[in-house]
Nucleic acid binder design. Structure first.
Length: 826
DNA sequence: AGCACGCCGACT
DNA sequence: GTCGGCGTGCTC
């Protein structure tokens, strides 16, 4: 790989590592860090935060340089093979942050760093197999069994990595075949460095030469090129060709004749695509001013966390912008987290309008290359403000003075997958380590943060008024039980809502209908025998999607044709019960044929740019009625919507999860807040089967206090967070019985620890039990939930359980995952 | 992760 | 008798 650097830098590195041994975390699922010897030629270029290529067992892998190490007595160290970066990829101040994450989330340190950095940059030795001449001859003349044939065909295309050989052979792959072929001399195996698919982008650039002999003797075309370069300075060859359509060979000829210089230049891949439109700060209200002063005076004075609790439309963003200005003036940097990609453009636009080019964005919508370039801009100080989704909490900002988490209650901050972290919590940890100020903003704070504020861990700052004295929407609750006996559309649209919609449309205003279930119908049931239609791989009810005329599983994405018969009795009469956004859209189009209807859910926004178009049409008033799932509740600004209809407020209430009430309250309060953000006051009609439930009652009055008092009592009584801490251990695998056995074994071991050791006496163990979603994508799932008042015994217990003598962290076909502070317990 | 070592069942 | 499956341990 060309990028391997071995030549010394000229600058003196700031974080040079002294001594002859360094501490390295490898990018592998390995919990320990490793000590390597530093060869003399590399001593000058080693810095904390650079990647190194290190021998690890039989191969070489990418590692992250964490700092100097003690020479261990009696251990002979292997030397570092190469340094992979000419500048560190993260500031050395972030090493303790990574270490904290590895400890707290019980995850290998090297994988934590890998998750933090842009992906696709690492290299490692991999086995690469290629066909020999005799192998090609023999194998092409023989008739082969199916898997052998497939492997041969793959190898015949050219050398293949082991992973590709495996994939081409399919499920029946056996490494013995490769060994045999190798012994017979048909294939050759070789260890080769592969990877680094993401790198900086360089394009041919044309530079004018300072002195050209006899310019008047040049051809007209050549003079035109030189004139352009003289006027505009050096430019990319592609741009030059666009400006002056000349033959591709002309510039090369000019370079050969010494009239211009042609050199590759690193360019920056721009993810914005839109120009910056500067704006002016509006005048702050008295309340905003006072909130700004409270938080502003804390800036630069060490770590502190604020919970900025402000009703929707109270102008939190404006406060973020003012705080950021103060921090930038103090020559520090700012990190802004938002829950999801769709909200980045709004937030980034606000920041770019005020701060210009020094804003970087980080989100999953970027290509690896764009993300890499944003990372470089942050590293070299061009970007001092970062706006991003949860993974942006790892942005390599040198000296953050302010970390903002907008809509802090949002579940999107929880990262699922291999490394499970909560970016909102990490933002506070990072702020503490950097002695920075953290601001958590929300109209409906999480119970966790509200609890922290009440205990004095966070400082609470409130914004009660909407800017311009806009009034909060009036919320009317409609009882759906009365409509239960109705037929057709009247079952889910009360007369009150219908009339309000008609009146709103007559006034040429916009309507938002919220229904937290996508697809066409809720449950699919066989009309003949009553058997529900379930996903083959997940045992979960499927949902009908009209557009694709298929049943879909919302958990694994599995889909089957709508012609499928009942799995029990074979009947083709499948009844569709309940309601999803897709069916609602169809019904609304029938009822209001002259209205322009749009739908916003995961299905209609899957395509890139689709969501932005929906939002733009809404802003341009091309849409009259917007139908959406919880996606519409996420902080988008809908200035012309004056009526919000909540079709069924109960959907999220019935989930088997202790946070169901909290989610419902947040969702309803957020959706209600979408009404009347413009000059016209809003109205909300909330339909429900449980009008007396306290979550719904509290959402109706937008009364967080009332909700908090009730909910916290409930959590206290049942011993749930935020009054306790939890760690969930999830056991999954394809072998149903083996998963169950492993879960029982772990449960036994865990139970014995708790019974035998006094320090674990306070830990409560729930389970092991089959997970509420027993099977997802053919993986059977069990879980073990551990609860305690404090985090420390829980961590110690899980560490003993997984890493003690005969630990269970890596057991063949069965996967054991640890989820610290789990959010989704299904 | 990937690789070696070591233990048991199914074949030449 | 050996071949090859996979559970277990290690990588500076």
């Amino acid at each position: 790989v060309k990028q391997v650097l071995t030549v010394a830098d000229h600058e003196t590195p700031a974080d040079r590592v002294p001594g002859h041994a360094v501490d390295v975390a490898v990018a592998l699922p390995v919990f320990a860090t490793f000590t390597y010897q530093v060869p003399d030629p590399l001593a000058d270029i080693l810095e904390v935060g650079k990647r190194v290529l290190v021998p690890f067992g039989k191969r070489r892998v990418t590692g992250y340089l964490l700092g100097p190490a003690e020479q261990l007595p009696g251990v002979s160290l292997k030397p570092i093979a190469a340094v992979l970066d000419d500048k560190p990829l993260f500031p050395s101040a972030m090493v303790p942050f990574f270490q904290w994450i590895a400890d707290y989330y019980i995850h290998p340190l090297g994988e934590v760093v890998q998750a933090a950095l842009p992906s696709g940059i690492n290299i490692a030795d991999q086995m690469v197999y290629s066909l020999t001449d005799s192998g090609r001859e023999v194998l092409s003349s023989q008739s082969l069994a199916a898997p052998e044939e497939k492997v041969f065909l793959a190898l015949n295309q050219g050398p293949c990595r082991l992973s590709r050989v495996k994939r081409s052979a399919g499920k029946t792959f056996s490494p013995a075949m490769l060994t045999t072929w190798q012994q017979k001399g048909w294939i050759a195996g070789e260890r080769r460095l592969v990877g680094a698919s993401t790198r900086s982008k360089a394009v041919p650039y044309v530079f004018p030469m300072s002195e050209i002999p006899d310019p008047h003797r040049l051809s007209g075309a050549r003079r035109k090129v030189l004139a352009l370069l003289a006027q505009e300075g050096p430019m990319a060859l592609a741009d030059l060709r666009r400006r002056s359509p000349s033959s591709a060979n002309l510039v090369r000829a000019m370079a050969r004749d010494g009239q211009v210089q042609l050199m590759p230049k690193t360019v920056y891949r721009d993810p914005f695509g839109t120009a910056i439109i500067p704006d002016q700060s509006p005048e702050l209200t008295v309340e905003q001013q006072s909130a700004l002063e409270t938080i502003g005076t804390a800036l630069g004075k060490g770590f502190e966390t604020f919970l900025l609790s402000g009703v929707t439309g109270s102008g939190k963003t404006e406060i973020y912008l003012h705080l950021a200005r103060r921090v930038i003036d103090q020559h520090k940097t700012v990190l802004v987290l938002v829950p999801e990609i769709a909200l980045i453009s709004q937030m980034a636009r606000s920041f770019r309008a005020r701060f210009g080019e020094c804003v970087a964005v980080l989100h999953s919508g970027l290509s690896n290359g764009e993300r890499f370039d944003q990372w470089q801009r942050i590293l070299n100080g061009q970007a001092t403000i970062v706006v991003g989704v949860r993974s942006a909490v790892f942005a390599p900002l040198a000296d953050p003075g302010l970390i903002i988490v907008d809509e802090e209650h949002d579940d999107s901050y929880k990262q699922e997958g291999a490394l499970r972290y909560n970016a909102r919590d990490l933002a506070v940890v990072r702020a503490r380590q950097c002695a920075a100020v953290a601001v958590l903003g929300s109209a409906t704070p999480s119970l966790q943060s509200a609890y922290n504020a009440r205990r004095g861990k966070y400082r609470q700052v409130n914004l009660f008024e909407r800017v311009d004295n806009r009034v909060l929407p009036r919320i009317v609750v409609e009882d759906l039980t009365a409509a239960r006996e109705e037929q057709g559309v009247r079952r889910f649209l009360t007369p009150c809502l219908m009339e309000a919609m008609q009146a709103t449309l007559d006034r040429k205003e916009q309507v938002l209908l919220f229904l937290n279930r996508r697809g066409f119908a809720g449950t699919l049931v066989c009309a003949a025998c009553g058997e529900p239609m379930r996903c083959d791989r997940c045992d979960i009810s499927m949902t009908y999607h009209q557009k694709s005329n298929a049943y879909k599983c919302h958990y694994c994405g599995f889909s089957r044709a709508a012609a499928t018969r009942c799995s029990r009795c074979g009947s083709d009469r499948i009844k569709r019960l309940g309601l999803g956004t897709e069916k609602l859209e169809a019904k609304i189009r029938e009822l209001f044929p002259r209205a322009a209807v749009a739908r916003m859910d995961r299905d209609t926004t899957a395509r890139k740019g689709a969501l932005l178009k929906i939002l733009k049409d809404l802003r341009d008033r091309k849409t009259d009625i917007l139908i959406g799932t919880q996606m519409v509740a996420k902080g988008h600004d809908f200035p012309f919507i004056t009526l919000v209809g909540i079709i069924c407020a109960d959907l999220s209430l019935s989930l088997p999860d202790f946070r169901a009430g909290e989610r419902t309250f947040q969702l309803l309060a957020q959706v209600a807040g979408r009404a009347g953000r413009g000059q016209t006051p809003g109205r909300v009609i909330l339909q429900t089967y449980n009008p007396d439930h306290f979550s719904i009652e509290a959402a109706r009055h937008q009364d967080f206090e009332a909700f908090y008092r009730q909910e916290i009592e409930f959590r206290k009584a049942l011993g749930y967070p935020p009054l306790t801490r939890m760690i969930q251990i999830r056991i999954s695998g394809a072998d149903k019985a083996a998963v169950a056995r492993m879960a029982e074994t772990l449960g036994d071991r865990c139970g014995r620890f708790i019974a035998d050791q006094a320090r674990f006496r306070s830990v409560a163990m729930l389970g092991p039990a089959e997970a509420p979603l027993q099977r997802i994508a053919d993986q059977y799932r069990w879980q073990l939930l551990l609860k305690d008042r404090d985090a420390a015994p829980l961590h110690l217990l899980v560490n003993k359980l997984l890493f003690g003598r005969d630990g269970y962290n890596r057991t063949g076909r069965i996967k054991i995952q640890v989820d610290v502070d789990p959010v989704f317990l299904m």
